[in-house]
Computed example of a mutant assay.
Amino acid sequence: MCEKLNKVNSWLSAVFGDQPVPQFEVNTRTVDLLHQLAQSSEARCSETALLTEDLRQKAAEYEAEGAHLRDVLLQGVGLSHTSLSKPTSDYVSALVDVAMVLGVRDTSLGSFMPAVNNLTGELLEAEKAHRTLERELRALRKRLGAALVLRRNLQEDISRAAKSQAVESAKAEEKLLNMDFITAKAKELANRRERAEAQLASRNMDKSITHQAIVQLSEEVATLKQEIIPLKKKLEPYMDLSPNPSLAQVKIEEAKRELVSV
């Protein structure tokens, strides 16, 4: 813990330089995190130093090779940078720029061709990836269109369902109100019937004149009328005969007695 804390403090002092190091809570977690950051920073600084040294060496090599080529051109051919025409100087500058863009060591054809081939391969891969992305994009657009259509249909279904639910809720509420009214009315009628029955019972009403008894008597009368029909048909041939006064008198007396008994 103390060793890590000392390393963290030295690293923070190096990072902030003349500025004061911000205060932080010293605990195991913060010290471990800062120690990891210090190690990562030192590793990156070491890699950067190595890369810088390599670039310096390459720059020195390029300068030496350039000086050698200038000497060859000057001593062997008698050409110098100042003796070149402007178009030639422009061509040389363009050639150098292309070499720098391609990242080749020199401007020879043997260096340019592999670099161009690599760029061509990268271009073909990029075009292939672009076509793949276009296909995926078209597929995504189709799925997006289908999803939007489905979303619109769902919204319409939800809207219709909400309206239908509102109508059904109104109908159910109306039915509940009607049911409450009918229930209250039925209770009221039942109470009235009970009071009426109690009132009739207190008055010793004859049950033979109740509605139920009258309905039953009416049904019996209707049945008797149906039974009398065939008897009337049997008596029709005798209706034209002259009546016997004594027998008629007897029948009249029987009918009077039956009427009195009824």
Rank of each mutant, 00 (worst) to 15 (best):
Gly103Val: 12
Val104Arg: 00
Thr107Ile: 08
Thr107Ser: 09
Ser108Gly: 08
Leu109Asp: 03
Gly110Met: 05
Val116Met: 05
Asn117Pro: 01
Asn117Ser: 07
Asn118Gln: 10
Thr120Ala: 08
Glu122Ser: 07
Glu122Cys: 04
Leu123Thr: 04
Leu124Met: 06
Glu125Asp: 10
Glu125Tyr: 03
Ala126Asp: 01
Ala126Met: 05
Glu127Trp: 02
Lys128Asn: 12
Lys128Pro: 00
Ala129Glu: 14
Thr132Glu: 15
Thr132Lys: 15
Leu133Thr: 12
Leu133Gly: 09
Glu134Lys: 04
Leu137Gln: 15
Leu137Asn: 15
Ala139Ser: 13
Leu140Ile: 07
Arg141Glu: 15
Arg141Met: 09
Arg143Asn: 13
Arg143Asp: 11
Arg143Gln: 14
Leu144Met: 14
Leu144Cys: 11
Ala147Gln: 13
Val149Ser: 09
Arg152Ala: 11
Asn153Pro: 02
Asn153Phe: 01
Leu154His: 11
Gln155Tyr: 07
Gln155Lys: 14
Gln155Phe: 07
Asp157Leu: 02
Asp157Asn: 03
Ser159Pro: 00
Ser159Val: 00
Ala161Leu: 06
Ala162Ser: 07
Ser164Cys: 05
Gln165Cys: 04
Gln165Asp: 05
Glu168Ser: 12
Glu168Gln: 13
Ala170Glu: 12
Ala170His: 10
Ala170Lys: 13
Lys171Asp: 01
Lys171Phe: 00
Glu174Gln: 14
Glu174Ser: 12
Lys175Phe: 07
Leu176Arg: 15
Leu176Gln: 15
Asn178His: 10
Met179Glu: 14
Phe181Pro: 00
Phe181Thr: 15
Phe181Asp: 15
Ile182Val: 14
Ala186Ile: 06
Ala186Val: 03
Lys187Met: 10
Leu189Lys: 00
Ala190Asp: 13
Asn191Glu: 14
Arg192Asn: 02
Arg193Pro: 00
Arg193Tyr: 04
Arg193Glu: 07
Glu194Phe: 01
Ala196Phe: 04
Gln199Arg: 14
Leu200Met: 09
Arg203Pro: 00
Asn204Gly: 02
Asn204Glu: 09
Met205His: 09
Met205Thr: 10
Asp206Gly: 06
Asp206Phe: 02
Lys207Gly: 02
Ser208Phe: 06
Ser208Val: 07
Ile209Asn: 02
Ile209Arg: 01
Ile209Val: 10
Thr210Ser: 14
His211Gly: 01
Gln212Ile: 04
Gln212Ser: 10
Ala213Thr: 01
Ile214Phe: 01
Val215Ala: 11
Leu217Ser: 07
Glu219Gln: 11
Val221Gly: 06
Ala222Ser: 12
Thr223Arg: 11
Thr223Asn: 13
Leu224Glu: 04
Leu224Thr: 12
Leu224Tyr: 03
Lys225Gln: 12
Ile229Lys: 14
Ile229Gln: 15
Ile229Arg: 11
Pro230Lys: 08
Pro230Thr: 01
Pro230Asp: 07
Lys233His: 10
Leu235Gly: 04
Pro237Leu: 02
Pro237His: 04
Tyr238Asn: 06
Met239Ser: 12
Ser242Cys: 03
Pro243Thr: 08
Asn244Tyr: 05
Leu247Lys: 14
Gln249Met: 02
Gln249Cys: 02
